[in-house]
Write a protein that binds this DNA or RNA. Structure first.
Length: 307
DNA sequence: GCGTCCAGGTCTACC
DNA sequence: GGTAGACCTGGACGC
């Protein structure tokens, strides 16, 4: 499959923490990304992708032979996860224009040359918005280690089984069929238990259409309003989910990004949300992406320009 | 070993 | 609209 160049697979995989959560697997040395994916047929296939001479090479396998349609479904799901359908040209145009201002002496803008050179800006997503939403709930008000454990337990106890014992991420239907006590006692989700159950039930019953949001023409403000109406989704969680939908108007500020910005920009105290919004306002509807690239630049072997 | 703090927040009640 | 307090877990830390 051809991709829009420049494209760096590792950069997209490590764009945020999802690759570190079940059921993703990232072989750093071999540069192979893989995961089990639940197919419409009910079977679970394992999908793999790696860089090829031209574009990306996909591979899929399951218990028994995969049909052509199933293989296509698996590949398409992985392409969605890598956000290959996202057009970054408008962001790049804005970032390039601001880069010219920055090199001309405008000191309040971040140095995003590395991102432009390497094609950064795609964020790793889940095959479904539902999975992104559940994982986002599992990141709130806890350590990353606890997030990993909760997601691992969800896959291990409710995910469909694929080849080599691989467990997929559970469907909304599978999650909706369990009790609140299950999420408290088996998943150890604590106060998040009723939120997880309500989310799964609403999605399974069709009362909440999360999947439609990926191709929605609705304005970002309306999507944000709908996400905020979901129990457990406050400002951070809703804006983080927006980011995974390719909507970067908002910043999804949390304690980690605020602290990281303070360190990168050498401020004595953690900047207010209003200050951060002002810093990134020049990027317009790409403000959240520009901020995210600034705070994650050092994950990719590039040092940010701030002292 | 035990208590406290806090980590990639959110909700509710109250002012 | 702003804010205090409650909410779960589990690892780190100090004693």
């Amino acid at each position: 499959m051809e991709v829009q160049e420049p494209f760096d697979l590792a950069l997209t995989v490590r764009s945020h923490g999802w690759y570190d959560l079940a059921p993703w697997r990232w072989d750093e040395q071999g540069a192979v990304l893989s995961r089990p994916i639940a197919l419409a047929s009910g079977r679970v296939a394992v999908a793999e992708v790696t860089r090829a001479a031209r574009g990306l090479a996909f591979r899929a396998f399951a218990r028994g032979r995969l049909g052509a349609a199933e293989a296509r479904e698996t590949r398409d799901a992985l392409a969605t996860c890598l956000a290959l359908d996202e057009d970054l040209a408008p962001f790049r145009a804005r970032a390039e224009a601001l880069e010219r201002e920055r090199s001309a002496g405008r000191a309040d803008l971040p140095d995003l040359r590395w991102a432009l050179e390497r094609g950064a800006g795609r964020l790793l997503r889940s095959p479904t918005v539902f999975e992104d939403a559940v994982k986002t709930l599992c990141t709130t008000n806890c350590s990353w280690a606890l997030t990993r454990v909760m997601v691992e337990r969800l896959c291990g106890s409710l995910g469909g089984e694929g080849p080599q014992g691989a467990r997929a991420f559970p469907s909304a239907e599978a999650m909706a069929g369990r009790s609140e006590a299950f999420y408290r006692e088996a998943i150890r989700a604590g106060y998040r238990a009723p939120y997880l159950l309500a989310l799964a039930r609403d999605v399974a019953a069709g009362a909440l259409d999360l999947e439609g949001l990926r191709r929605s023409a609705l304005p970002t403000a309306e999507i944000l309003r709908r996400l905020r109406a979901v129990r457990g989704f406050g400002p951070y969680a809703a804006e983080h989910l927006l980011r995974l939908l390719g909507r970067h108007d908002h910043l999804a500020l949390d304690s980690w990004t605020r602290a990281k910005l303070a360190r990168l920009r050498g401020t004595r105290r953690v900047p207010s949300d209003r200050t951060v919004r002002r810093w990134f306002a020049p990027y317009g509807r790409w403000a959240g992406l520009a901020m995210w690239l600034e705070v994650t630049a050092d994950w990719h072997g590039d040092r940010p320009s701030w002292p």
